[in-house]
Write a protein that binds this DNA or RNA. Structure first.
Lengths: 115, 115
DNA sequence: TCAATATATGAATAACTGTTCATATAGTAA
DNA sequence: TTACTATATGAACAGTTATTCATATATTGA
């Protein structure tokens, strides 16, 4: 049985269906946001805003166990949020690109808080 | 015992600690990202890009049970991602502000995919 | 080679979260 | 009021995930 809604918004509904990204793309975007949606990982990103850092200093900056930070860094890297390079005994991490900072800043603007 | 890292990056580490947002602010930002990090909720946002829609049409656009969509809408609204107004028997939802679209577009750019 | 530092990883547990089912609330028309 | 449509909500279960602990790998210096 048909619904009794006003026809006004059916155009929007139709366009929404036609332009819905394929399932895989939605899940890729979702994975990005999920990766940066945990306070512990978000702190790492806030820390890396100020320049590249090795794991030891990241642990200092965000607190928590070295093992936990390492697990989180692996997730961030696997999802393309951060990148890393070896420098002697250290692994130096940095934000993958400028989009990351831009997204963080937009979210803060949305919340009316200063980064 | 002191670590043996190069001093190069200690400036970044110090700045990171000094500029780390307070715990509450980190968690508010994290909550925003967590809210938009589920494929089902993300689909709702992709759908609402094309204009406001009532729940019935959102269900049509994203699939799934009405109850599930309603739960998701509640979360989205509680976190300030969408807003709603009543229109007769219908509740019409729309994106809360332009930041939401901007964040989605940035994430897609990051993934090199067209929105 | 050995010892020390730096980082990563596997497994296990505890906490969290999305969905479903059943039901409740609210508006509309008769 | 009653019947119907539209939306919301509470509880419970299943699946996911972050952390901890113990251990492994890799680099450096002696």
């Amino acid at each position: 049985m048909e619904c009794q809604h006003k026809a006004e918004h059916e155009g929007a509904a139709r366009r929404a269906i036609e332009n819905m990204p394929p399932e895989g793309e939605v899940e890729r975007v979702a994975a990005i946001f999920k990766t940066i949606s945990e306070p512990s990982r978000l702190k790492i990103l806030f820390a890396l805003r100020h320049g590249e850092m090795c794991v030891f200093h990241i642990v200092e900056a965000v607190g928590g166990a070295q093992s936990a930070v390492s697990h989180q860094l692996r997730l961030l890297k696997a999802n393309g949020i951060v990148k890393s390079r070896r420098d002697g005994q250290n692994i130096v991490y940095s934000l993958a690109d400028e989009h990351v900072v831009a997204v963080l800043e937009l979210a803060c603007t949305h919340l009316h808080c200063k980064l």
